[in-house]
Design a protein around this nucleic acid. Structure first.
Length: 110
DNA sequence: CGTATGGCTCCTC
DNA sequence: CGAGGAGCCATAC
């Protein structure tokens, strides 16, 4: 059952993010999506608001795209407001994103 | 520093 | 419901 990330792993990931050379915006985005509970999905707008940039929906997208922590960070739990998956630059592409979402019992996919 | 691009979102047709 | 146009924001060049 290595599917679920332990708190320790998560903490380590956060530390890595902090050490990673990236813009504060990026770090905020990654940290925020890490707070998304398993089996749940959030919209880019939600993340944007959470980090204090309610209009930076595209910025969030770019941030996730450049996310060096790939599936480790639940970027697949971030979808569009319409219910579409949006995009996924991680391994496997959009198909992988859809698969991951289905695995987490997420039926928000229209 | 100005231009070009997006894992967006909203509005109109 | 799908296509097109317009904002808005951060990043890469």
């Amino acid at each position: 059952m290595s599917k679920l990330i332990t708190k320790f792993q998560k903490n380590r990931l956060l530390t890595s993010i902090r050490s990673w050379k990236a813009t504060p915006f990026q770090k905020k985005v990654w940290r925020t999506i890490l707070t998304i509970p398993p089996g749940e999905v959030r919209s880019y707008e939600w993340v944007a608001k959470k980090i204090g940039h309610p209009r930076a929906t595209r910025g969030v997208g770019s941030a996730l795209k450049k996310n060096p922590f790939a599936p480790q960070v639940p970027c697949h739990r971030v979808i569009r407001k319409d219910g579409s998956l949006g995009g996924y630059s991680g391994p496997g592409g959009i198909s992988q994103k859809m698969r991951l979402l289905k695995k987490e019992r997420i039926a928000s996919i229209a």
